[in-house]
């Protein structure tokens, strides 16, 4: 190509320019969609955070600069919400990843009918938040729940300040476990057979193989799963809205950031503060992901 370019002076420049236009044309449809539905809302959100909503609808909001951010950072509501969000993620992610890992290892056996189990184990990924919420309502309800029927008496989780948040996190973990299972199963299946066979010949017990070979080799996938899990848990909304929001119960103990944003926007109609909260959620997600990359990646073994 360079030889041809040197034979035709200017040809390479023309070609590069034409390729440039072609490239732009190819990415344009995606660019338009991203611009309309991602970039514009993203920057608009920042702008909204600078304006304070009027106390009554249909009145103009007015510019307050960064005052709302300062107020938010000093407010107990916000800090409680961050705390709930962190606890929520700390329950959801380890439960989901460990649950997914255990199921993936169990289902990674050459057994008759194992595909049925794989389908069952991965099924929660296709269940919507609404389905997950209803399933757990049926299980946990203090009046008509299955656990109640089995003689296990639970308090009303929707109004329990102690159990509300863990119960919501459990629902999220149940939903996430299917995705974790699929990701980790794919990771397990991509591990080289010969390495596993070598470890068998080298006298490793099943337990040693799991701890010293499988998990280290799977660590990039587990790490990826953790990152996805954190992002997933920080965005869990549906189950909280259905299980807590519709019950009319107090929501303060399950007021994770995403739910707080929703309430600020639709209940309080405080668009400015809701925008500040969503920026805070964005920053927290970004920071947590970066910290994960910095800290956990050191413990990840990449093959090459």
């Amino acid at each position: 190509m360079s030889a041809r370019a040197s034979l035709v002076p200017g040809g390479s420049v023309f070609r590069r320019r034409r390729d440039g236009w072609l490239g732009l044309a190819l990415v344009l449809p995606a660019l338009i969609i991203f611009a309309g539905f991602t970039y514009y809302p993203f920057f608009k959100n920042f702008q909204m955070g600078l304006f304070k909503a009027a106390p009554f609808p249909n009145l103009p909001s007015h510019y307050v600069g960064t005052a709302q951010f300062t107020t938010m950072l000093g407010s107990a509501d916000f800090l409680d919400s961050v705390k709930s969000t962190v606890i929520y993620a700390l329950i959801t992610v380890p439960l989901g990843v460990i649950g997914g890992l255990v199921m993936a290892v169990l289902a990674h056996q050459k057994l008759r009918g194992i595909r049925i189990f794989r389908t069952i184990f991965s099924s929660s990924v296709v269940s919507s938040a609404a389905v997950a919420a209803v399933v757990f309502q049926v299980i946990l309800s203090p009046q008509t729940g299955y656990l109640q029927a089995l003689g296990i008496h639970l308090p009303d989780i929707t109004s329990s300040p102690t159990w509300g948040l863990p119960a919501m996190a459990l629902v999220s973990a149940w939903q996430f476990v299917g995705l974790a299972f699929i990701i980790l199963t794919a990771g397990l299946q991509s591990l080289p057979d010969e390495i596993m066979e070598a470890s068998r010949v080298d006298g490793a017990t099943a337990w040693t193989r799991l701890w010293r070979i499988t998990f280290p080799l799977l660590s990039p996938t587990i790490f990826f799963c953790g990152v996805v899990g954190v992002i997933f848990s920080l965005q869990s909304f549906g189950q909280i809205d259905i299980m807590i929001g519709t019950s009319g119960a107090t929501y303060t103990h399950t007021n994770v950031l995403i739910y707080a944003i929703y309430r600020l926007l639709h209940v309080s109609q405080n668009t400015g503060l809701a925008a500040c909260y969503s920026i805070a959620l964005f920053v927290i997600t970004l920071l947590v992901t970066l910290i994960q990359f910095r800290l956990l990646e050191r413990r990840v073994h990449y093959a090459h």
Partner: peptide
Amino acid sequence: LEPKDRDIAMVFQSYALYPH
């Protein structure tokens, strides 16, 4: 017998070294 109980050692085509 399981491979580990046969007192054998094997060199694989791909060497099958533990990359980590």
